[in-house]
Amino acid sequence: MTLTQLPIISFAQLDTEQERTRLRKAASDVGFFYLVDHGLATEQLQQVLAVSRQFFALPDAQKRALDMENSPHFRGYNGVGAEQTAGAADTREQFDWMNETTALDNPQQPWQRLIGPNQWPQSLPQLRQQLLALTAKQTQVAVGLLRALCQSLGVDAHALDHTFSDAPYTHAKIIKYPGVEGATQGVGAHKDPGYLTFVLQDQQSGLEVEHDGEWLSVEPLAGSFVVNIGELLELASDGFLQATKHRVRVPKPGTYRYSAAYFMAAQLDAEVPVLDLPAEMKARSQGVSTDPNNPLLRQVGENVIKGRVRSHPNVAAAHGY
């Protein structure tokens, strides 16, 4: 049967076995779903999209002052075409931030250089306030969702807690996709490197998910997050859950698409374990993906930095990665 819409999962009902079963089916059969009843107010989500529009409307010089090339931690602003996916330039403007931390004095591994401060525009102080508040709440939801997902897989709800006991590694971005004549790739087809991704969409469609060899359009659903399974959960489930390819198409010329993406992973110094799933789930596993261009690495920091360097070769070159 052809899939016409992503499953809808209620976060508020995940204390029931019935909803956790629906969660497992959505996560294993599709790898994508809408998450509703997550506790974040619609007003707060609309404020995030509004402040995003304010940021992208700033003078170009103010945005360029926050260019990601300034940051060895891969944080800050990217103009259209600055990020690459699947070897091609993406048609999007974006602003990235991560956990607000202090840089290490003497990092020993390349991935340890991801640890550090964010860049923020002085002329728009509410951006920092609203975006950090958003990710703090999203992290609470993501941890609860991950625990419910573990339960749905027949293991202890806290089976992965030790991989983020200090704090999950989080990466987020606000994005503006301009309608450009002749362009099609907002973001090329890819998988996400973490445990879970949340996407907040405005009313402009464009996100597409690969399912059974076809591309499904993910239409905006008010008040929801679009959630997808990342590579770390594919590794943890030994392939029972699959990180799903997705892409974003450029909107029509003269229009724009705004979104906010949040990526939750284990802490960077963790190694992802293999969960001991029930026999019937092990039997259904497709195995962990093997792609020589994108090997999946159990050491979280190595898996994350691999994606950052591939997506931002200019930043990597500027800081000697």
Rank of each mutant, 00 (worst) to 15 (best):
K282R: 15
V143R: 05
F240Y: 15
M281S: 12
V80K: 10
Q138K: 12
V209K: 02
T135S: 02
P273A: 05
V300W: 07
A318E: 09
Q108S: 01
D202F: 12
H246T: 09
N314C: 07
Q129N: 04
P110R: 05
V199M: 11
L277Q: 13
M281T: 11
F11P: 15
Q151L: 12
A65R: 14
L132V: 06
I115Y: 05
L131K: 08
Q126K: 08
A243K: 02
D156W: 00
K245R: 15
Q46V: 11
T21S: 03
Y177W: 03
Q129P: 04
A316H: 12
L268E: 10
Q112L: 03
T85W: 04
G87S: 08
P220C: 06
L58R: 14
I8R: 00
A88E: 13
L268T: 12
T135I: 07
Y256I: 06
M68W: 12
T101H: 10
A265H: 13
Q54T: 10
A183R: 04
F263N: 13
D212I: 00
M68S: 11
N314R: 13
P292Q: 01
H73M: 09
N118Q: 05
N303G: 06
S224I: 14
A283K: 06
Y169Q: 01
L131F: 02
M1A: 14
G188Q: 11
K252C: 08
V199F: 09
M68P: 10
E271R: 14
Q126P: 05
S259D: 02
L146G: 06
P121W: 01
L160A: 02
A261Y: 05
Q5L: 11
P273K: 04
G154Y: 00
L268N: 11
Q62I: 03
G287R: 11
T255C: 09
Q185L: 10
Q62W: 04
P7R: 02
I115R: 05
H73W: 12
A243I: 03
V141C: 10
K282D: 07
T101L: 15
G230L: 00
M68H: 12
P220A: 10
G206M: 07
P193M: 12
D269A: 13
D67A: 15
V226F: 12
G230K: 00
A183V: 02
G179M: 14
T16E: 00
Q267I: 11
Q185A: 09
Q299I: 08
S259W: 10
Q299W: 08
K25V: 07
N228R: 14
Q44R: 06
L221P: 10
R308N: 06
Q138V: 09
G154Q: 00
I174H: 00
L297Q: 07
T135F: 03
K176Y: 08
A157S: 03
E19R: 00
Q242D: 03
L114C: 00
A236C: 04
R147P: 05
K282G: 09
V226H: 13
A136I: 04
G81S: 02
F225Y: 14
E234P: 00
G76P: 11
L275F: 07
Q5A: 14
G31M: 02
L232E: 08
P178N: 03
V288D: 11
E271N: 11
L6V: 06
Y34L: 15
A89G: 05
A26N: 01
G76E: 09
F32M: 01
F55H: 11
Q13P: 00
I175P: 08
S10I: 09
G254P: 10
Q122R: 15
S205N: 07
E231C: 14
G31K: 01
Q267G: 13
T2E: 05
T102W: 10
M1T: 13
N99A: 13
